[in-house]
Design a protein around this nucleic acid. Structure first.
Lengths: 199, 199
DNA sequence: AGTTCTATTGAACAGATGTGCAATAAGTTC
DNA sequence: GAACTTATTGCACATCTGTTCAATAGAACT
């Protein structure tokens, strides 16, 4: 049994890679909605049947192209926060803060997605992943006040993504450090506001 | 000058209404991606050219169908929170809480959107609107701690939407009141966690 | 090496797309 | 009501879509 058997057929790898590369290349010129399957297979120099052998629609191809980026996002989140430049409020914050570094790293790709109006596929993917990660953190430290784990996880995940999408649409005029600062400031603000109203 | 002149041509109104109605009807049976323009105009009993006269793609038609729902969402947010069933943490909370009532009111429509995998168009629209509303609230009460208004607005808007989408995907197993309770509990939790870590 | 397996190809097909045009129907304005 | 304006229609067209098929080429396994 060779080690190659667990991987895909080399022909499949090559075809898929060519298709992804072509899609991203065309996305730099055309809006995603305007790109046809014929466009993709022509620049990839492949038969149209080859596309349909592996994918149903171009969105599915894009999804696979995003996979690598998502993997890095997860790594960023899991990576322990070493440099203590700013005051850390909680472990949740320290993890999510790292994500801004990841987005900055892939800012070109993210911008491309925004420009092509395919932000929403990405949005779902990212929020789903963030939610899973938050859920894992939550299960370690049991919840007070009868908080619903799924709800707070979605709350946190989408809140973070809200800041990220705002950042992307601003064409990255802020630094990752500034984004991290802002997240901390917002969490502090919630704290201050609540204690003010409660006393 | 008649009062009708400011409104659309009656023919346009009728055509658009028929197209929207047909789209929603078909969406109850087919996945959004599988619905063709020909499908829509056939059930609407209109010429295909009529569709292209007003819209470019079916997504644009759907967007218009969502408009009415969005209008109600904005009304829900703006409506002052009268019934004090639960402890109100802040004015922001009291406004956002009303949104859960709105979503429950349109739960059938929201479920339909989720089922048809067109949640993302909706998501963008809603988060955009929520952000605007939050921004209006913020400008009234100036920010402390050098908080970036756009960032906190997106943070809040997407966080709320995160809970909403979680709610929808759970097929509305929770009541609107429970959702409101949970939002308050999450805000309280942030407060508690922060003060704990800071002292 | 030879054998088996399967990805890719090219061709063909019905259906959908997006656009254009002249004819007609329906709306608006006075 | 008459004149003007424009939405809708039916038809046609080239292109794209999604699928099927036999033929071929390439990869995997012994």
């Amino acid at each position: 049994m060779s080690t190659k058997s667990i991987y895909q057929d080399r022909r499949i790898r090559k075809s898929k890679a060519a298709l992804k590369e072509s899609l991203i290349a065309i996305m730099k010129q055309k809006d995603f909605k305007e790109i046809s399957i014929t466009d993709i297979v022509q620049t990839a120099d492949l038969n149209r049947g080859t596309f349909y052998k592996h994918y149903q629609y171009k969105e599915e191809l894009l999804e696979e192209a995003i996979d690598d980026v998502i993997k890095d996002l997860i790594d960023s989140y899991r990576e322990p926060y070493q440099e203590v430049e700013v005051l850390i409020v909680s472990k949740l914050s320290s993890s999510t803060i790292k994500i801004f570094d990841h987005v900055e790293k892939y800012s070109n790709f993210y911008s491309l997605l925004v420009k092509s109006n395919v932000l929403f596929e990405l949005q779902k993917r990212i929020c789903d992943e963030l939610k899973k990660l938050v859920l894992q953190d939550i299960t370690n430290q049991p919840l007070q006040h009868n908080i619903n784990a799924n709800l707070i996880a979605s709350y946190q995940a989408n809140a973070i993504w809200g800041m990220i999408s705002e950042w992307i649409q601003s064409e990255f005029i802020y630094s990752a450090a500034y984004m991290a600062e802002q997240l901390l400031a917002i969490l502090h603000l919630n704290s201050a506001k609540n204690t003010y109203r409660e006393t």
